[in-house]
Design a protein around this nucleic acid. Sequence first.
DNA 1: TGTGTCAACCAGAGCT
DNA 2: AGCTCTGGTTGACACA
Length: 217
Amino acid sequence: MSFSGMDNGMDELSDDGMPAWETKRRSLSKEQVRTLEKSFEQGNKLDPEKKMQLAMVLGLQPRQVAIWFQNRRARWKTKQLEKDYDGLRGQLEAIKSENEALRAHNEKLQAEILALKGRDSTSEPINLNKETEASCSNRSENSSERTSMAMESSSFHPHRGLALFASVRPAEMEMHCPKIEHCIAAEGSFSNLLCSLEDHASTFWPWPDGPDQQSFH
DNA sequence: TGTGTCAACCAGAGCT
DNA sequence: AGCTCTGGTTGACACA
């Protein structure tokens, strides 16, 4: 074990029976850490037998091994939270751009409707389907499909981006928009996004049933 | 000298 | 009761 700067002669004992000057000694050796890491990869929980075995092999106090595992779990969790945060931030950006696309498309449709209404009031009754066909040569008669085609003719791609919206069919867009609006309205508060994605967070832990049932692959 | 990292510790909770 | 866990803190050390 290598450490420096602890060269005084204090000889009172700590709770571990170690000299007090040893209680805050610096780091474990590279070899010790390598072995501990290897063991941690196989399973981040420490049963008493494994603890004793590691302590014996590494020439450490069993308590030191236990503490190393505790600290290592804490570090792992912190890293995992950072990763999770980054992932959610990415999803937020995707949702925002998706919303922009929806907004733009919505405005386009509104303008189209207004134009049609304008014509409607100045001339004879208009067959909407026919009129729409005229304004967009390759559209079908079905209004839902028409909407779909309109979406394709603009830059909107329903299957691109978040799976979150994969189930939103064009005809349902109006229904879903308020939800998205709400989401984006709350974009200043990241916790709201966290809440909305909470149900998707079951994969947070790499093992089933949460952190207590861990078993690394 | 400020800051980050890490071993060690503590308190409180849960499990057997 | 004894053990282990998590979350937070402390103190020593390394480094820019």
